[in-house]
Design a protein around this nucleic acid. Structure first.
Length: 293
DNA sequence: CACCAGGCAAGCC
DNA sequence: GGCTTGCATGGT
């Protein structure tokens, strides 16, 4: 186990020699849609109602304008810094050349601990969509219905609460151009807003029961619920099977076409409780190189 | 102009 | 149970 040194200087938080941490890997592996790369290579965006600019400086990671309190109270957990990803990669790579290559390629991936409500809406929007457009829809959602945030002299927007979206009509929501997903977003907002679905209750449930509860929301099916479990509830054994994962698993492991059920079953056998990490390494590797397309 | 995009719900058998 | 189809919008 390593111990990473953390320094607080000039109002910034600096992670010294941060291992297993690369911004492009973290923000371009399809787990969050609200961060973007700046011309200087830094990334900026927001999580819930907190904005962040973050950059790489040599082997260090700099969280700009983030105090010790903000770091220990939120961003430390957000970036999952208590977990040893070196150990995860080593375990996954034992007796598996595919995973060894995939985890070497996306060596700096970490699974972010994100807000449950934000994940529900984000992955409802992700269905039958492409990542650039998902980002655009979520940006318009926050810009139109979130609160304005001031950070580092720039303007960001919070992710709108269920109560805010629950009061909208489909016509009002149509400004975000989410297409047929409008009614699903409103169903989720209304269910949660009126208490028919309780996020804290879902959080307390074992994974299969939490999944069943999530799937009561319109627009949340097998794959979307697995993403919500993985990214919003910390259920690291979840292995969402989308078109990319299906394709690369067929190409690398099956050497033939396979059903979603077969892919899920093989993932459970091979990766077990580390399924979610394996999924992220595979997804980033496959998509970045268009493997199996 | 087809075809597809981190799927899902509803309607069939 | 499994299989098919329509779905809004925008990019290639």
């Amino acid at each position: 186990m390593y111990t990473m040194e953390i320094k607080y200087e000039h109002g910034d938080t600096v992670l010294k020699n941060a291992p297993d941490f690369k911004l492009r890997h973290i923000f371009d592996c399809g787990q969050t849609f609200r961060f973007g790369e700046n011309p200087d290579g830094s990334y900026s965006g927001a999580a819930g109602s907190r904005a962040l600019k973050i950059s790489e400086r040599g082997n260090d990671i700099v969280l700009h304008g983030i105090s010790e309190n903000e770091f220990t109270g939120f961003w430390h957990d957000y970036f999952d810094l208590g977990r040893d990803y070196g150990k995860i990669k080593k375990t996954l790579s034992e007796n598996d050349d595919i995973m060894r290559r995939a985890s070497e390629y996306g060596f700096g991936i970490r699974i972010l601990n994100q807000d449950l409500w934000e994940m529900i809406i984000s992955f409802i929007i992700s269905a039958s969509n492409n990542i650039p457009r998902i980002k655009g829809i979520i940006d318009r959602l926050c810009r139109n219905f979130g609160d304005k945030l001031e950070y580092m002299g720039e303007e960001y927007f919070s992710f709108p609460a269920p109560e805010r979206l629950a009061q909208l009509s489909e016509t009002e929501l149509s400004v975000i151009r989410a297409g047929f997903r409008d009614k699903y977003i409103l169903d989720a907002a209304r269910r949660i807003s009126c208490g028919e679905t309780s996020l804290e209750y879902i959080r307390s449930l074992p994974t299969p029961e939490a999944k069943a509860e999530l799937m009561k929301i319109k627009g949340v099916g097998n794959k979307v619920s697995d993403c919500i479990l993985l990214f919003g509830l910390g259920r690291a054994d979840s292995f969402p099977v989308d078109v990319w994962i299906k394709r690369i698993m067929e190409y690398c492991y099956f050497k033939r076409e396979a059903s979603i059920g077969e892919v899920s079953e093989l993932a459970r056998e091979k990766f077990g409780v580390l399924g979610g990490y394996a999924q992220q390494y595979l997804f980033f590797w496959a998509r970045d190189n268009k493997i199996g397309v």
